[in-house]
């Protein structure tokens, strides 16, 4: 499992290194094939954790140690697609990916 992820990672690295960032390479790539959309998840996290600091902390914890109990996905989704694999990114890359994710979906400045 881990090996395939590394292989994919290496492949994507070589192919898209020039115009894709760490979030697009590692999160979007996988999620766009799944019906579990990233924006819905963002609002689920917002609903549960409220602030930027708490949302980012929860995301980081979950990505590093995915547990069924901590998952915000419905039981059906988990039963069908399983839990997300543990991240292979370094702390720095993970932080960067989460920061990009937050910037993309945050509500600050978007409400009219």
């Amino acid at each position: 499992m881990g090996r395939t992820v590394v292989t994919i990672l290496l492949m994507t690295l070589t192919v898209f290194a020039s115009d894709m960032n760490v979030y697009e390479r590692n999160c979007v790539e996988c999620h766009k094939k799944l019906p579990v959309s990233l924006d819905k998840f963002f609002f689920n996290y917002l609903l549960k954790y409220s602030s930027e600091r708490r949302v980012k902390q929860a995301l980081r914890n979950y990505l590093k140690h995915p547990r069924k109990k901590a998952s915000l996905a419905t039981e059906e989704l988990v039963a069908r697609y399983g839990l997300m694999p543990k991240t292979t990114l370094s702390d720095k890359e993970l932080k960067e990916a989460i920061d990009i994710y937050w910037e993309k979906y945050k509500v600050f400045g978007k409400i009219e």
């Binding site: 917002l46 609903l47 549960k48 954790y49 409220s50 602030s51 949302v55 509500v107 409400i111």
Partner: peptide, 8 residues
């Protein structure tokens, strides 16, 4: 109780 749009 539920933080709609992150609102506490």
């Amino acid at each position: 109780d539920s933080y709609y749009l992150g609102t506490k």
